[in-house]
Nucleic acid binder design. Structure first.
Lengths: 220, 220
DNA sequence: GTACAATGTGACTCGTAAGTCATATGACTA
DNA sequence: TAGTCATATGACTTACGAGTCACATTGTAC
């Protein structure tokens, strides 16, 4: 976490530093990011940087915490459109709301996604707990869907979690990559065409999970 | 490509250098890999390295070409178990044969996978042609499956290709990651339990693709 | 043996990174 | 005014990377 000195800084100066760091991580990933460049781009001295943060990992963890807080606020403010929604419907809503959020903060999301997903730190020691959180949530959802009779009870829960996890990551990465090419990413994500594409991708997963295992057992 | 000097080298010396490079890329990825370390680990001088290769990218491309050649030999020697196989059956066979190969050359595969898939160079400028090859093959397969009536003709081919591509990558990465934890990776991949897991993952995709789009259209 | 080509060597240059520290600035306080 | 404290600075140290080059060694042909 940043030192008190950083938190005492005027809002505007803090923002300049945060933006420089976001651009650096989004553009170079974690390892290739340079504190020298962050410092140069935010027009502070090297010494000041080390008065604010411990090191590169410290800044990154701070950015991550900002993103998580914003995301939690965002989800708190949103509510699922209808209350009588099945588990998969709820999952679809969640994924789409997530995309909406990502499009509202594309640079920040890109920085964090690049480091955590693309560079694989997410699955390494430092951030494994965040991934654990996701898989736990998914696991609960699957079990709920089984209770509701939406998923065949013979389904291997761990496997289904992996499917949903990988699938969500793939869609998110894909949408972010394509979205960054657009003029107005938020508008593009909200467009009927993009929404339909996301829906289709999610349905591929959903029907796979709904139908697979029972069929699989019969076919063997 | 390596210079003639390298190709003139005695087989054993070449192997030592190749092994050092493989270990370096497998352990550090592309950017973080160091020629200094490769040189130290293969007990040649810095000067010699530059007599053999242009630079880091040159070694990596050479390793990649070795892997591709070996893989082509491997697939040439193997034949699908039965001739009356549907498209998805053929796809399953291909994926599994691929896993078999990866397990036979785990370090080499890990090095290349880490750089191309995990670090995302596969989708960058340098290696995009290899990815294009994969998507073209998949595209042909999907169209064939449609002709055979195995896939709903309303399916969006581009979307299906993306599904298969992403899914194959995810499974490959997963199996390689888990496999590296085992004592005998080849034995582990061949075990009934692992094969069943791979099958299940592929069936999730298959049933998703078979059933989704027509259902999707009806549900809207 | 001599001459010439091929191969091998590691110290050296140059660039850039992380992190430190003596010193400077400037605001507030007694 | 003098003292004190938080903040700001950038030159400096240390480490490590890529790539070069003058020179050394080895192999081969005559």
């Amino acid at each position: 976490m940043p030192k008190q000195t950083f938190l005492n800084l005027p809002e505007q100066k803090r923002q300049i530093i945060i933006n420089a760091a976001v651009d650096e991580f989004a553009g170079f990933g974690f390892d290739a990011s340079s504190i020298n460049r962050i410092v140069a781009n935010s027009k502070i001295s090297k010494g000041s940087f080390y008065q604010y943060f411990e090191d590169k990992m410290d800044v990154f963890k701070y950015l991550l915490s900002l993103l998580i807080n914003e995301k939690m606020e965002f989800f708190k403010a949103k509510h699922p459109p209808s209350s009588n929604m099945d588990t998969f419907g709820y999952f679809r809503w969640m994924v789409k709301a997530g995309m909406e959020f990502n499009s509202a903060y594309p640079r920040m999301t890109q920085a964090v996604t690049r480091v955590l997903l693309v560079e694989g730190l997410y699955y390494g020691k430092n951030f494994i707990q965040y991934h654990q959180l996701t898989t736990d949530t998914l696991s609960t959802m699957i079990r709920q869907a089984m209770k509701n009779g939406e998923v065949d009870p013979s389904v291997d829960v761990e496997l289904a979690v992996m499917v949903m996890d990988v699938w969500t990551t793939a869609i998110t990465t894909y949408i972010l990559q394509e979205g960054m090419k657009q003029k107005d990413i938020l508008k593009w994500v909200r467009s009927a065409k993009t929404q339909e594409k996301i829906d289709k991708l999610l349905y591929v997963m959903e029907y796979g999970l709904r139908k697979t295992e029972s069929q699989f057992v019969r076919q063997i």
